[in-house]
């Protein structure tokens, strides 16, 4: 169980690093990387919720269902994380595409130049 607490705190630190990067770093690419870190922190929270010290949730043919249910990790959160990884990958792809277009115009990645309000 101690492992779970450590993992939760690590994921909290990842979330905070991500937020710091998004708000305080003046570079589009670094902002996008920070968003990835933020998303990974949330994914780690989800994974850790499903951790109970058990094995991988794959049943071997000779194990009865009730024995397996007692010693397996929870499958729900792992499924949620798989879904969320795809979602984040697609968001990143779109953002990278736009930053390529804007980079071609401004020849810089500084967000104070690119994202300036007009």
């Amino acid at each position: 169980m101690d492992f779970q607490i450590v993992s939760f705190i690590a994921s909290g630190i990842l979330v905070i690093i991500g937020l710091y990067g998004v708000f305080f770093v003046d570079n589009i690419l670094k902002k996008i990387i920070a968003l990835d870190i933020l998303g990974n922190g949330v994914n780690l929270v989800l994974i850790t919720i499903g951790y109970n010290g058990g094995t991988i949730p794959i049943k071997l043919p000779n194990v009865p269902v009730d024995v397996f249910a007692k010693k397996s990790a929870y499958p729900l959160t792992q499924a949620l994380v798989l879904t969320n990884i795809v979602i984040e990958a697609s968001m990143l792809a779109v953002m990278l595409g736009v930053s390529i277009i804007l980079y071609k115009k401004y020849k810089t990645l500084k967000s104070s130049v690119i994202l300036k309000e007009d």
Binding site: P57, I58, P61, A69, P75, L76, L82
Partner: peptide
Amino acid sequence: VYLTHYIIPNYVCSVI
């Protein structure tokens, strides 16, 4: 519920 009801051996896949 997910762990006690069997669909396929890979339980993560059965949730997904």
